[in-house]
Design a binder for these strands. Structure first.
Ligand SMILES: [Mn+2]
Ligand SMILES: [Mn+2]
Ligand SMILES: [Zn+2]
Ligand SMILES: [Zn+2]
Lengths: 120, 120
DNA sequence: CTTAAAAATGCACTTCCATTGCATTGCTCA
DNA sequence: TGAGCAATGCAATGGAAGTGCATTTTTAAG
């Protein structure tokens, strides 16, 4: 099952909600997907994305990504038209300077707008 | 009621969830708070913050803020220890460059870590 | 002042997604 | 081969957001 889920995710280029995967595999239970994604995340296979919709999305990590150890540095784009959320892995989050006393552990940057498919 | 809610929010320096305000006013219904915050947001009195916890937070807008018209430019900090989310209104979100074809409408930048109270 | 319309509030209900307990099934390896 | 562990499925729970409708309160016209 994990292999099937992994292959499905590898074939998609946008981030997926749990329900997306659920619809692609009518025969598997939500719970299995939920726990599989949790395992994947712990093992650094996928990373969870909070795009502001309130629905967690998941995407495979790039080869060489070590987001299970340190922070995930690339930004995410959420299209307000088609609803898709994509990883812009080439676009790293710039250095943020914080006020005195603040200690950064993780940075999450989400740009909302129109994606390449919807902007024309 | 709106005045009471406004004053309560003005007295706090961290962003608040709906349940936070609910606990501060035991005599008011959740729905009233919900709709009040919605009205405040539409009128540009408060702005909603998605800090990645999945729970919407609200904070008063600064004088001169026009986030009801255009995007809210400052970043937000979420403390992983005390759970508080604060506006860093002096820290503007840097310019983000996107791939060809992408059109930005809004940017949300949340830094997670330890706040000034929790980092010592 | 009286009264009708509009706005605000409260209650109950729904929906949606995340999460967990527990029983069952499947797999691995001694 | 069988015991132990991992994976799966089912059912239930919980939390938060959102909505329909009745009631109360406010506003403003006459
Ligand atoms: Mn990503
Ligand atoms: Mn803010
Ligand atoms: Zn799109
Ligand atoms: Zn803190």
């Amino acid at each position: 099952m994990r292999l099937l889920i992994y292959r499905y995710m590898a074939g998609r280029d946008a981030a997926m909600a749990l329900s997306d995967i659920e619809n692609a595999f009518t025969k598997v239970d939500r719970t299995t997907l939920y726990r599989t994604l949790k395992t994947f995340e712990e093992k650094g296979v996928v990373h969870q994305i909070e795009d502001g919709t309130g629905i967690s999305k998941y995407a495979l990590c790039e080869p060489g990504c070590n987001c299970s150890i340190e922070q995930d540095l690339h930004l995410h784009f959420h299209c307000s038209n088609c609803g898709e959320t994509v990883c812009l892995t080439e676009h790293k989050i710039p250095q943020i300077n914080l006020p005195e006393g603040y200690l950064a552990e993780d940075v999450n940057l989400v740009v909302t707008g129109l994606c390449e498919k919807c902007s024309t």
